[in-house]
Amino acid sequence: MSTENSTAAINKKIFEVSDLKVHFTTSEGVVKAVDGISFHLNEQETLAIVGESGCGKSVTAQTIMGLIKSPPAKIIGTIKFKGENILGSDLVREYRGKKITMVFQEPMASFDPLYTIGYQMTEVIQKHMKMSSSASKDLAMLMLKKVHIPDAERRLNEYPHQMSGGMLQRIMIAISLVTNPEILIADEPTTALDVTIQAQILNLVAELKSEFKTSTIFITHDLGIVSEIADRVVVMYAGKIVEQGTVYGIFKSSLHPYTQGLLKSKIRETKSGEELPYIPGFVPTSYEIPSGCPFHPRCNYAMEICKSEFPKERLIEDRLVSCHLYSQDQ
């Protein structure tokens, strides 16, 4: 359903990350959690960032939100929000929570257990929108209704432990949209929920997106979700972006061997009794990222050059891909 939106939306960049590097110096060496990534987000678009655990998806999100302190972390690059660089500037304090909001993975842990839902909602509303307490309560109730929480008035006076994970995640989404933000970052918002609730949440996100016209960055490792809600996809591996492009292009004819492997690993294409397809080898640990293209030890098409040099990004069809396989072709 969201692909319709994307075609309608004007392709105007609202948010741009260029050559972002986030390195942590530890006693065991430098961890390159994010190593030179560039991507952008268009207005009213949903961008999915996919990749295995530890590939740097969440660090990217946290860096955007200004949650990673520098020092100790070393952060280089630019993060532009509407043309202004917010990385390392005080602007991020001003924007986060109001213009850029975030939804977390674990809804049960995202609320302070000591306060009622209503208190936690009105706290945010009063902070960012300078409303009276009764007006903010009305707004909180309205938002609860928008995320389909029944009996909103009673729910406002209840504590987080009285609700289910799915409800809490819906309330979390309500809180993150209450300030009418321009960008919503959802960090695996459905991972902790079961499949039926996942579907509800995804429908809700899509529904609210069309109402609030919020640009969304959706971080996930679930390709099923990506195909359902994303307009464009960024595929990350070991701190680098290996391929990015429209969801249609990537699912139809992925270029990078890693993306191809990921797509092949989906369960539905195998018959029972057959071994599930997988990418051979292991995800490298953050301390020992292979030289050159980090995927080369697991790649079926690996060449000599892959071991020494990370390929430059090339535009092929509608996609940006970093792989030596396509270097000669161009």
């Binding site: 977390f104 993975q105 609320f111 902070k127």
Partner: peptide, 26 residues
């Protein structure tokens, strides 16, 4: 490290407020 503290930070709550109204009461 709990997400509700991170969530409070993300919604722009001041450090001192986080300490006095979320960390210490908990």
């Amino acid at each position: 490290e709990k997400e509700f503290i991170v969530a409070a930070k993300v919604s722009g709550v001041k450090d001192m407020k986080i300490i006095t109204s979320h960390i210490l009461p908990n």
